[in-house]
Write a protein that binds this DNA or RNA. Structure first.
Length: 583
DNA sequence: GCCGTTTTCGGCCCGACTGTTTTCAGTCG
């Protein structure tokens, strides 16, 4: 999974180096050259210093995989914005071939073949060729391959082009910081789907309460990073920033702040339902306040200043933004029966994180110290099992070696506790990647699917259920395997998995990786209905990513999860009792 | 392209899986 880079520069450079790797592959150059460019990109994402500083201090060559050629490209990128090597490759490789790589199952070799023989450079052309059976004329292409490519294109098309919540939050935070610095409005909040923690974001809504809108609008459209101004008005402006993300700013009078917040937080369905409810009470709700019908033009609102006021005036409890999807939260609020949602502060530890022993960036000690710094009582370090060769999965010898390190850290940081964990692969056959003896070496085992995503639904379901039956498997990680805007969930009978979670006391993970959020909020809701237990995890591969717990908890909240339903809200002693018995 | 020596070029985290093949290339993680 790509990590969040330290700075904007670092991320930009990493992205270009990665693209050089792809282009070099497409051109058919020495494949190890591409490997190196990608490795350098990864090393840059792992950096803890800005590239610019390293360049100024002539220390670029200290970065792993950065030699003379890549250092030159980095310098060019940082000083001129482009790299010679990148431009040359772009000129030599037909535009569009890069897009073909986005089709799962199409790699550089396939892309090259279909371009050379059929002249195809776009996904549309590829789809047409597959539909008319022309792909079949190529060597090593049969009906099945054609079918797979069509399926892959189909799911590619279903993607919405929405931003991941992590990217939208970053863009929103940058803008909010800028506006605070320039104008410091008394009240400002990011509303909309960002505030509701939806898993993907269409656009970002920022609501500000101020008497004079002029200065803040001015600052908004002049913010760094604004690529295009769509609209600039007295109460509302819209701009487009990087990657096409749209930011809307609404300025409302301070007296209307609460009502505006309700209105701009949404969801639309929630608002429609609320307004309908208001009408039944002969009230009218708009973005300025709650009024008696007929008085909205010149009357004083019954409520408007805070959200709490507005909900209370409608005879209901305040509703957490994560619940505002019109999925029963309004009825529950009227009946004063809203769930007592789990909160970030309830989390006592993280049960899924990686270290440099497998594919993580940071050491056991660094991960443990950061976890302790977050106020946790424990962290399970769950490095990968052997099947994931690419991730340096742990052999028995390396499990033991890692244990020595963990024990030393535990002595030093007590009473904080590092739990000896494993993220064990569930292989295509359904077999776990470690035998029972090796599994017995771990205090926490989370099992997950990382291969053969295309298995038939019943095969995949059996595969996962089989793992859940195993007495040493405490949890199933990212149970559906989806990558938002990138890869669909695999076919699996999720209802059967949720039922099995209750029966076998296996926990279902809510994975906080912003591209996963898996289980989804919908599935969490179902798990709550049948009484399955969850565990909220960061799946961190670096110390900063421990903060991804926030996304896991938000997703659990969207699924109405309570503290009692999330296992890692337990204190260590209680947790240990559960782990021994399973669960 | 980079690395680490076997100091001047050979090897490059590698295993599982698929779809096409009778032995493997390509993709994925």
């Amino acid at each position: 999974m790509p990590r969040v880079s330290l700075t904007h520069d670092n991320e930009q450079v990493a992205a270009v180096l990665e693209e050089i790797g792809d282009l070099s592959d497409l051109k058919g150059e020495n494949p190890f050259r591409a490997v190196t460019f990608r490795a350098a990109a990864r090393a840059i994402r792992d950096l803890r210093e800005p590239l610019r500083v390293l360049m100024e201090q002539k220390r670029l060559s200290e970065i792993p995989k950065v030699g003379p050629a890549i250092a030159e490209a980095i310098e060019q990128l940082l000083t001129t914005g482009t790299a010679k090597r990148h431009e040359e490759l772009k000129a030599q490789v037909p535009p569009g071939l890069l897009m073909l790589l986005r089709v799962p199952g199409v790699g550089p070799a396939t892309a090259r073949t279909i371009h050379k023989t059929l002249g195809i450079t776009t996904i549309d052309e590829l789809e047409a060729a597959a539909k008319t059976g022309r792909l079949r004329t190529l060597p090593k292409f049969q009906a099945k391959t054609e079918e797979n490519i069509l399926k892959a294109i189909g799911s590619l098309r279903q993607r919405t082009g929405r931003a991941l919540v992590v990217d939208a939050r970053a863009a929103a935070a940058e803008m909010v910081a800028w506006l605070r610095e320039r104008c410091d409005p008394p009240q400002m909040v990011v509303a909309g789907s960002v505030r509701r923690w939806r898993e993907t974001i269409g656009d970002v809504d920022i609501v500000v309460a101020a008497d004079a809108a002029g200065p803040i609008m001015e600052a908004f459209v002049a913010a760094p990073g604004v690529e295009r101004v769509i609209a600039r008005g007295d109460t509302r402006s819209s701009v487009v920033v990087e990657r096409g993300l749209q930011l809307d700013l609404r300025v409302v009078p301070p007296a209307s702040y609460g009502a505006a917040l309700v209105y701009f937080t949404g969801s639309k369905a929630h608002n429609v339902h609320l307004r309908g409810l208001a009408l039944k009470k002969k009230l009218l709700l708009n973005e300025y306040g709650l009024y008696r019908v007929g008085e909205e033009k010149d009357g004083t609102p019954i409520a408007s200043r805070t959200e709490e006021d507005v909900y209370a005036a409608l005879g209901m409890d305040w509703i957490a933004p994560e619940l505002r999807e019109d999925r029963g939260e309004i009825e529950a609020a009227v009946a004063h029966e809203l769930p007592d949602l789990v909160e970030l502060g309830d989390i006592r530890g993280d049960l899924h994180a990686h270290t440099s022993w497998s594919d993580g960036r940071d050491t056991v000690a660094e991960m443990a110290e950061r976890a302790r710094g977050k106020g946790y009582e424990y962290i399970a370090l769950t490095d990968h099992s052997v099947a994931l060769g690419m991730t340096k999965g742990l052999t028995e010898d390396r499990i033991r070696a890692r244990n020595v390190e963990i024990e030393a850290v535990n002595r030093r940081l007590a009473p904080f506790r590092v739990l000896i964990g494993s993220e064990t692969d569930i292989r295509a056959s359904g077999k776990l990647d470690y035998d029972d003896r090796l599994l017995g070496m771990f205090e926490v085992v989370t099992a997950s699917v990382h291969s053969s995503f295309a298995q038939a639904r019943d095969v995949m379901t059996k595969r996962i259920l089989g793992a859940m039956e195993h007495p040493r498997v405490n949890a199933i990680s990212h149970p559906t395997g989806r990558l938002l805007e990138k890869r669909d969930a695999y076919e699996v009978d999720l209802e059967a998995v949720i039922q099995a979670a209750v029966r076998t006391k296996t926990r279902l993970e809510v994975n906080g990786g912003p591209e996963r959020l898996d289980l989804s909020d919908i599935a969490v809701r179902r798990a709550m209905e049948v009484g399955a237990m969850l565990v909220c995890n960061s799946d961190a591969h670096a110390i900063e990513e421990l903060d991804q717990m926030e996304y896991a908890v938000a997703t659990a909240r969207r699924g109405w999860a309570t503290k009692e339903s999330v296992q890692n809200t337990m204190a260590l002693t209680e947790l240990r009792r559960h782990l021994e018995g399973k669960g």
